[in-house]
């Protein structure tokens, strides 16, 4: 399978010097293939999404494209559909019409299986210790070298000193960091983050920003609904329009 390495697509990383039409053959060794070390470029494309939720049309013909190596920050007023958009892209919520494609990923897996989703909940169990919580996610998400990854994730989010305490003792911000640490225990190219900075202090927000930058530097793709400028190296803002005034019945009801 070839991937296209067009100019402008390869954001944030050293572009290939010379690209023959159709791209370099994948198995060509490094001296002959300047693109060999480049990870597969992933691309998430949504076209003309129409999504209903709770009897209202939340997204009405929305299109967006995001390319591996960038963080796309979704902004917009309350009710503009940021959460709905993230859950639709992750495949939790079926769209009424429109398409979602994920290019450059594992064709055998769904988008959800290649994504981390951090919603409003942290997925943290109060009766497990900090370390057990992460170890469970590492094992459940079938990570290799789980122990080291858990150690790295705990260190990155500043939880290594707390790792033997039950999560019940953590503050809201610490629980949030533990929830975010899940991002690092298993590698997945797509990150869908819904208000990830909720309850985080400035230092923790910086830790998150560093994690996001590292992920995008490795070719990963981050979609985050947030209003804070995280100080990211490679970020773009996508502004969702507010709910349109006028007639917005659901597509399903319009058919009745």
């Amino acid at each position: 399978m070839h991937r296209k390495t067009e100019a402008g697509v390869n954001i944030g990383r050293r572009p290939c010097a010379v690209v023959p039409p159709g791209g370099w053959p994948r198995r060509l060794p490094p001296p002959f293939n300047p693109c060999f070390h480049e990870p597969a470029i992933v691309k998430l494309v949504a076209e003309n999404l129409v999504v209903d939720r709770g009897g209202r049309t939340i997204l009405d013909g929305l299109s967006l494209a995001a390319i591996g190596g960038e963080a796309l920050l979704l902004t917009g007023p309350n009710g503009a559909g940021k959460t709905t958009l993230l859950r639709t892209l992750a495949g939790f919520l079926p769209q009424v019409s429109g398409t979602i494609r994920f290019e450059g990923g594992d064709a055998d897996k769904t988008i959800a299986e290649q994504a981390h989703v951090v919603g409003h909940g942290n997925g943290v169990k109060a009766n497990l210790t900090v370390h057990e919580n992460l170890l469970f996610w590492a094992a459940f998400l079938e990570t290799e070298a789980a122990a080291e990854r858990v150690r790295t994730a705990l260190t990155h989010f500043g939880l290594d000193a707390l790792d033997h305490y039950p999560a019940a003792y953590l503050s809201a911000g610490q629980k949030r960091r533990l929830g975010l640490a899940r991002l690092l225990v298993a590698h997945r190219p797509l990150w869908f983050l819904d208000e990830p900075t909720m309850s985080l202090d400035t230092a923790s927000t910086t830790r998150l920003a560093v994690a996001i930058d590292a992920h995008t530097a490795g070719g990963g793709l981050v979609l985050a609904a947030t209003h804070l400028p995280l100080g990211l190296a490679r970020a773009r803002t996508f502004d969702l329009p507010s709910a349109l005034p006028g007639f917005r019945t659901t597509a399903a009801e319009a058919r009745l």
């Binding site: 005034p245 007639f247 319009a254």
Partner: peptide, 13 residues
């Protein structure tokens, strides 16, 4: 119900 929802959105707008 659909008309009411539309009306609410309309007035809100």
């Amino acid at each position: 119900k659909a008309m009411r929802v539309a009306d609410i959105a309309h007035r809100d707008g």
